[in-house]
Amino acid sequence: MLMIEDLQVELAGKIILRHIDLEIKPGETHVLFGPNGSGKTSLLMTIMGYPQYRIVGGKIIFKGVDITNSPINERAKLGIGMSYQRPPTIHGLKTRQMVQLCSGNKEELSVEDLARRVNFVDFLERDVNAGFSGGEIKRSELLQLMAQNADLMLFDEPESGVDLENIALVGNTIARLLQKDGDGIGAKTRLQYRRERTKMGLIITHTGHILDYVIVDKGQLLYDGVLSCSTNPREIFKCITEVGYEECVRCTLENR
């Protein structure tokens, strides 16, 4: 479980997140909406532990551990992973090596098998993110997350810039990572599968396309440094489309 209480975050001397309350229970996936510059990426980076996002108030609890001041790698070890919007290039580090590192250098890991699932085998010998196109970056990030096997996965606009053919691939891969696909069902009943689901997700989206592939439990709207929540992500998306962010915040608040 991820619990964020009254979080306040400062970036470069400016408060960008004023008051954030967020609770993601095991097995739950939320989508995060919000206008450009509203601080969505900042929220994810803060959860991941990037020190330039200075926490000036509130706390973050993950799996019962207060991680408000933990370094990035401790959070990763605890099971938080992220798919970045604009990850840096690391020269001389092959994507294959990166995937291996993500898995904690598991001997039995077959990088090829994982890569095949996101159509990325041809990129394994290339330096991480070096010259990757927008869509290729997304697949590379997903591949790394697959190897990492995190429990809470933060996706920063995973479908932006992805072409029509790859969108299904990306969507289904995320669903699988979050145990939101049908594959794991087998002999179990759907209910059982849902109960046993443990993976948590927080997905930033502008387009809402991801909702076509992943059954999302809640929608969050970030506006003016504050999160407002609606139980139905489709509803909130529809509302943004029809009346805009500001109006939508007002109506979700009223409907609480």
Partner: peptide, 23 residues
């Protein structure tokens, strides 16, 4: 780059040496 690798579970030292090795 260091943070990126740390978010994949590497310690700061491991991340640094990985980047240097790549360099």
């Amino acid at each position: 780059e260091i943070f990126y690798l740390m978010s994949r579970g590497l310690s700061e030292e491991e991340a640094t040496s990985t980047i240097v090795r790549g360099f």
